[in-house]
Design a protein around this nucleic acid. Structure first.
Lengths: 145, 145
DNA sequence: CAACGTATTGAAAAAATATTTCAATACGTT
DNA sequence: AACGTATTGAAATATTTTTTCAATACGTTG
């Protein structure tokens, strides 16, 4: 029951000088209620339940805006690369190959690896995306029968 | 100067029961000559230099086919998620945020991390995609001026 | 090595996805 | 409460991908 205008994403938008319009708040709410795995069309459908006159164009525009501010990020997978999730700089996803559910997991232990890549290639490294895919426990059971 | 019909990808296609047609061989050759980072349109353009009557549809179809056989895989990045590269199961990409060049790097040290995720989530893990982004040495220089 | 049956092809059409344009509207400031 | 401007949705446009289908090339068989 938190005020939609007080969420971190809403705050960040306001601080960046953008208006907190109803369409934008609807998109934000959808993103917050569904941590990962919605594509623009799905966000649009759910957003319309919150703000019925929402337009698909605005969903695209809002996602672009949020992506530019680093608040949202695409979740990629073999099957789909148009899903968005509320995002920090670095992301770690675990994707079920059967039901395509996406969850996040804590990620530790990449620092060393990145340091060695840095040394070997001369690249600076600003962000990373680690995506693991396999089967979730439910699908393992379901497919075991 | 290797026989295009003897490359590992061509062999795998043949073994899976598919015909080694000229259009397919052209697509394979393009993929082999450009290790990462071409989208279907770019593959089409280059493929036509090899086999001029190549159709874009065939590029899509061949990529689907190769992806299904696990021979090719999309390279995802913040800006683009339609690039294909010849692929093993596990991939590690390093992407320059400025020139969008994609290189691969050897990846060691993920095993531990994956084992801990496996234990914490109950997921099985079959594949991984690790994408690092930053600036390549050239762009670092260029932007430093 | 010629002829055959079928998988594969390219072009065109259709579908899906994304972007641009623009007049009308809602935001937040004053 | 009224104003100026950023933002909106609809329509038009552009881009990307998939489907359909008759024509063709593959690789097998005789």
């Amino acid at each position: 029951m938190t005020d939609p205008r007080q969420t971190p994403m809403a705050q960040a938008l306001r601080e960046a000088g953008y208006k907190l319009t109803q369409p934008r708040l609807a998109v934000l709410q959808v993103l917050e209620e569904n941590d990962a795995g919605l594509d623009p069309e799905a966000i649009y459908d759910r957003g319309k339940l919150i703000y019925p006159s929402l337009g698909l164009v605005t969903v695209y525009r809002t996602l672009d805006l949020l992506a530019e501010l680093g608040l949202v990020r695409r979740v990629h997978s073999m099957h789909n690369c148009h899903n968005y999730a509320s995002a920090r700089t670095d992301r770690h996803y675990l994707i079920c190959e059967s039901c395509h559910r996406v969850i996040e997991f804590p990620c530790r232990g990449l620092e060393e690896l990145m340091e060695s890549v840095r040394q070997q290639t001369g690249y600076t490294i600003n962000a990373h995306l680690l995506e693991l895919s396999g089967l979730c426990p439910e699908c393992q059971k379901r497919l075991a029968t």
